[in-house]
């Protein structure tokens, strides 16, 4: 199951990322390959497994000291490794957008949310200010904000966590990207609000025919939300599996992750502890992180 069902949007081949450190190069991501179409694909793994670095490497959002190697990173015919910085800015927005976990880091604290969303629109569309505002209000409505005119004038610190994440989604989707990378977009929210935000994202992604890369540490959530799941450990892909077949996975790491979760229907005996195996990391497992 390594190929998407429909036309390929994004193809990554043998992506590796390392960072210099006082103790030598630290490998954060090693030989990651994936191909995806207009589908919801999840990247799951424990902290430090390389999920965020993978997402950021695709969009070239890593600091300049990061060493990135790949045989191929192609988005709809664009070779992202060879794009100029100017072409890249066009792609980040109309091509691929990224939503982060905490809107506080991505929103400018001294500008109203309305201004920021409409700017995300005018960067890519030549329209009047009034037209940009109309589009912004429409987008706020699309993320189910009931009083868009009022929210338009608010500053980031004046909105709740759930609304902040919906605003981020509005800002990332207004340029109409073909692919959204959402990095733990709802992990800081209460479970019911989290699901409501995901439902909005889900509806928009299917209405607009987008692809979605959903990064999360929550295997159960991802398996109920996505079509396919990439399981990462120590910067490597352990397996790519259809969400519907997750429970039948035979990979020991995936099984370990599933089994160590406490369950409402469980029998309350000791939780199985995950045994890690260096063999999962291939032959060069020194320099390992995570």
């Amino acid at each position: 199951m390594n190929e998407p069902m429909n036309e390929t949007l994004l193809r990554v081949k043998n992506l590796s990322v390392s960072f210099p450190s006082p103790k030598g190069e630290v490998t954060a991501v090693k030989n990651v390959s994936l191909a995806m179409g207009k589908e919801k694909i999840g990247i799951v793994g424990e902290s430090g497994s390389g999920k965020s670095v993978t997402g950021r490497a695709i969009l070239r959002l890593l600091p300049s000291y990061a060493r990135i190697e790949a045989d191929q990173i192609v988005y709809q015919g664009h070779d992202l490794q060879r794009c100029s910085e100017k072409e890249m800015r066009r792609i980040r927005g109309m091509g691929i957008s990224m939503v982060m976990q905490d809107p506080k880091y991505s929103l400018n604290p001294v500008r109203t949310v309305g201004k920021q969303i409409s700017e995300a629109y005018t960067i890519h569309h030549q329209v009047s200010k009034d037209e940009a505002k109309v589009q912004t209000l429409k987008m706020l409505e699309a993320v189910r904000i009931r009083n868009p005119e009022q929210v338009y004038r608010l500053y980031p610190h004046e909105v709740s966590g759930g609304m902040g994440q919906r605003i981020m989604i509005a800002m990332m989707l207004i340029p109409d990207p073909g692919l959204l990378i959402a990095d733990e977009p709802t992990s800081a929210l209460d479970v019911t609000v989290q699901l409501q935000v995901l439902a909005i994202l889900d509806d928009l992604v299917s209405e607009r025919g987008m692809g979605l890369i959903f990064i999360s540490h929550d295997l159960e959530l991802v398996s109920s939300f996505c079509d396919r799941i990439i399981i990462m450990y120590g910067g490597r892909i352990m397996e790519i599996i259809e969400a519907a077949k997750l429970q039948n996975s035979r990979h020991p790491y995936t099984r370990g992750l599933l089994n160590c979760l406490p369950k409402i229907d469980g029998d309350r005996t000791q939780l199985p502890v995950l045994e890690r195996d260096d063999a999962w990391l291939g032959d060069d497992n020194h320099n390992l992180t995570g």
Binding site: E46, S47, L219, L257, L261, P262, V273
Partner: peptide, 8 residues
């Protein structure tokens, strides 16, 4: 904590 550490 990560889920595997939570279990421990």
């Amino acid at each position: 904590l990560d889920v595997s550490i939570q279990a421990e």
